[in-house]
């Protein structure tokens, strides 16, 4: 798919994600746009576009399941038990959750996540362990986290330019500018790491970089947005909740970073992954 086709597809996806209710409706709409074929034929492009746009638009759909299913050669459309931080297991249901972020007992109540607990042992035992599926899931989550980070940066940037204190936009203050610059740098770095993520180690690193960038974005953007970013009326908190929850899927930033460290320590050498 050339750059122009990708750009057209991105616009179509963005429109669909903005206009369709998140969850099952968007799941169906993505199906109508040819998600299954796209994932089969151009997985790298499909995953980058769909998941980064889910982040940017703040939408969601249970398509992470499809990425894992496709990676293990199973038919799309179902659900899979997914590993979560702290050794937990969750299922991303293909049904709708609450509409408010603070509903349902989870940090992001809009996501139809079911936490497996006592009595779900059989279901939890089927948790994804296939390396290729873990890598595919991590790449998808990485792009989603970067998209979420971009959404937060856009909100903070707009606020910095609009908000006037001491007689000038706060974007004129270096302390504010540097936080936004730092956010941008982290997101750009994470994108480069994700674009180079083909094998398992690179996918793990890509998600760790993206998780770190999204967490950095949350911290800096919340600070730049000041009081308004702490209210429920402003959109920022939705993205922060999303970033924190997504970070935990398939290992959080802290766990993945430690795993990468343990891996290269055992290996005795730091693999060079991107080549000229």
């Amino acid at each position: 798919m050339d750059a122009e086709e990708q750009s057209l597809l991105a616009e179509a996806l963005r429109g669909t994600m903005t206009e369709t209710a998140a969850g099952t409706a968007l799941d169906a709409a993505l199906g109508d746009l040819g998600w299954a074929d796209l994932l089969a034929e151009e997985p790298a492009v499909a995953v980058r576009l769909v998941f980064s746009l889910l982040g940017e638009t703040g939408a969601h759909a249970p398509v992470l399941n499809d990425v894992v299913l496709a990676a293990t050669g199973q038919p799309l459309g179902g659900t899979v038990a997914l590993p979560y931080a702290g050794g937990r297991v969750v299922v991303w249901e293909r049904k709708d959750a609450g509409s408010a972020p603070d509903e349902g007992g989870l940090l992001d109540g809009t996501l139809p996540l079911r936490v497996l607990g006592a009595g779900d042992d059989a279901e939890a035992a089927a948790v994804v362990t296939d390396p290729a599926a873990l890598a595919a899931g991590r790449r998808a989550l990485g792009w989603w986290l970067v998209g979420t980070g971009r959404a937060m940066l856009a909100l903070a940037r707009t606020h910095a330019l609009d908000r006037v204190q001491f007689g000038r936009p706060i974007a004129g203050f270096q302390a504010v500018r540097h936080r936004l610059a730092e956010t941008f740098v982290a997101l750009e770095g994470a994108e480069a790491a994700l674009a180079a993520a083909e094998d398992e180690l690179a996918s793990l690193l890509g998600k760790a970089a993206a998780g770190q960038a999204a967490l950095d974005a949350a911290r800096h953007c919340q600070q730049v947005l000041g009081g308004i970013g702490f209210t429920a009326e402003h959109a920022l908190h939705r993205h922060i909740r999303r970033a924190l929850v997504l970070d935990g899927l398939f290992g959080n930033t802290r766990e993945l970073t430690r795993e990468a460290g343990a891996h290269i320590r055992r290996l005795g050498r730091a693999p060079r992954i991107a080549h000229l």
Binding site: A192, A193, A209, E259, A260, G261, R265, A274, L276
Partner: peptide, 26 residues
């Protein structure tokens, strides 16, 4: 025997180097 903190620190250094390598390649 290395502590978990050792792996975390090594992993963070590797992640930072890997990230700039990917960026520079691009």
């Amino acid at each position: 025997e290395p502590e978990a903190a050792t792996d975390a620190a090594i992993g963070a250094a590797y992640l930072a180097l890997h990230t700039v390598r990917c960026r520079s390649r691009d």
